[in-house]
Simulated assay, not measured.
Amino acid sequence: MDSASSPEDLPRFAEIVVIRHGETAWNASRILQGHLDPELNEIGRKQAIVVAGRLSKEPKFAAIYSSDLKRAAETANIIADICGLPEVVLDSSLRERHLGDLQGLTLRDSAKLKPEAYKKFLSSKRDEIPGGGESLDQLNERCVSCMQKIAMKHIGERVIIVTHGGVLRELHGHAVSAQSKDGKIHNTSVNVFLVSECGDWTVKTWGDISHLQEVGVLTNAFGGDKNSG
Rank of each mutant, 00 (worst) to 15 (best):
S228P: 14
P59E: 04
F61M: 04
G216W: 09
T24M: 02
M147D: 07
N140E: 14
S110E: 04
E116A: 15
A48W: 00
S3A: 14
E39D: 11
K153R: 11
A151C: 04
V215I: 12
A25D: 10
K57P: 03
R30I: 04
G84R: 01
N77K: 06
L40D: 07
R54L: 12
L36Q: 10
G22H: 09
G165D: 13
A175N: 01
A175E: 09
V144N: 04
Q103W: 03
F193W: 14
N27Y: 05
E134F: 14
L55N: 03
F193K: 10
D137F: 08
M147Y: 06
K181Q: 11
A14C: 15
V215H: 03
V167R: 13
N140K: 10
S145H: 01
S145P: 00
G216R: 03
L105S: 10
V167K: 11
E214C: 03
L32V: 10
T205A: 06
D68M: 02
L40C: 08
V17L: 02
S3W: 02
D109Y: 00
G207M: 08
I49P: 01
E197V: 06
H211D: 07
G133Q: 14
L107C: 12
P7M: 05
V192F: 07
A63R: 01
N220Q: 11
S6C: 02
S228C: 05
M152N: 06
F121C: 11
E23N: 05
H164F: 12
K184A: 12
I43N: 12
C198K: 10
L194N: 15
I209V: 10
I31C: 11
S145W: 02
E58Q: 06
K181T: 15
E58L: 12
R71I: 08
A25L: 08
V18Y: 06
L10A: 05
V217P: 06
D127W: 07
S92I: 08
H172K: 01
E197Y: 07
N77S: 13
I161Q: 08
S29P: 00
T219V: 11
V51P: 10
G166I: 05
G44T: 03
A52E: 03
I79S: 02
D208E: 13
K181R: 15
K114G: 13
E134V: 06
T202R: 09
A117I: 13
K112Q: 15
V159G: 01
A221Q: 12
V50W: 00
V51K: 00
A48D: 05
A76Y: 04
S228N: 08
S124M: 13
S93G: 09
V51L: 04
L139S: 13
H154C: 06
S177I: 15
A117R: 04
G44I: 02
A73W: 02
L102P: 03
E157D: 08
R108I: 08
L55R: 01
D101M: 10
I150N: 01
A63D: 07
A221T: 04
L32E: 10
K125I: 11
L136E: 07
V215G: 00
E157F: 06
G104Y: 10
A178G: 05
S189A: 15
